Simulated scan of single mutants.
Amino acid sequence: MSDHQLPHEKGFHVSWDQLHRDSRALAWRLDGKGPDAGAWRAIVAITRGGMAPAMIIARELDVRVVDTISVKSYDHQSQSDAVVLKAPDPAIIGDGAGVLVIDDLVDSGKTLEVVRALYPKAHFATVYAKPKGEPMVDTFITGVSQDTWIFFPWDMALQYVEPYRGKD
C-alpha cells in the first residue's frame, strides 16, 4: 500500500439524511441574523451543489426569493479557474445586501471569491468547509481536512464493496 492517497481514498460520505440535518443546522445558525429585523430577503444558490442546501434553508427560514448563480470550477475531481455561466437578475440581488449565498462546500475558496466580488455585501454560508476556503465563508457547519474528498449523495450510487482485508 502506498503512502499517497487518491482523492476518493480519504472520503467523507454524506447521505441525503445527513445533508438534510446539516442544512437545517445551517438554517438554524442563520436564523435571525439577517439585516431586516433578522430576516433575509433572498437566497442565491451556487449551482449545482448549493441547490439542495439552499432549498432546505429557504424552507426553514421562509425565504421565497430563491435564485441561482452557475459557477464552474471543477471538471470531475480536477479544480480549475472559476467561471460564471449564469447570474441572477442584478436588479433583484444588487450588491448582495440581505442576501444569503449558499453552497454545499467551500474548498479552495476560488468559487466564493468570484461570487463575493459580484455580491460583496452578501452573507456566504456553506454546509461544509475546508481550511483553505474558510476565510471566504461567513458561516459553515462542518469543517473537514483539505485532503478529504466529500462524496455528496447526488454523486453516489449504492454498490458492493470488498472488505478491507480481502476475501475469506
Rank of each mutant, 00 (worst) to 15 (best):
V83T: 10
G38D: 01
G32W: 03
P35N: 10
L85F: 07
S70F: 04
L30I: 07
I92M: 14
A82V: 03
G50H: 07
R48D: 11
G32V: 10
D75P: 00
S70G: 12
D62T: 07
D62K: 14
V71T: 02
V83Y: 02
I69C: 02
R64M: 09
K86G: 03
A87K: 03
V71K: 05
D81P: 04
I57F: 02
A52K: 01
R29L: 15
S70I: 05
L26M: 05
D89E: 11
S73K: 08
V84R: 00
A39Q: 12
V65P: 08
P35V: 09
D31A: 15
R29N: 09
R41I: 06
W28A: 15
I57P: 10
V44T: 09
A39V: 07
G50P: 08
D67R: 01
D36W: 14
P53L: 00
L85E: 15
A42W: 05
V71E: 04
V66L: 12
A52I: 14
W28E: 15
V83G: 11
V65E: 14
S80I: 06
Y74A: 09
M51I: 15
Y74L: 00
G49C: 08
A37H: 15
I46L: 07
A91N: 11
L85G: 10
V65D: 15
D89A: 08
L26N: 03
H76R: 13
W28H: 15
D36K: 14
T47G: 10
G94E: 04
H76S: 13
A42R: 05
R48A: 04
G38F: 09
K72F: 06
R41M: 03
A45I: 00
K33I: 03
I43S: 03
V71L: 08
V65I: 11
I43T: 08
G94M: 12
Q79M: 05
W40R: 00
M51S: 12
D31Q: 14
A91H: 11
A54M: 04
A82E: 10
G50M: 02
P90R: 13
A45M: 09
Y74P: 09
D81F: 13
S78M: 12
V44D: 04
I69S: 07
S73M: 02
V63A: 08
G94Q: 09
Q77A: 14
I46W: 00
D89L: 08
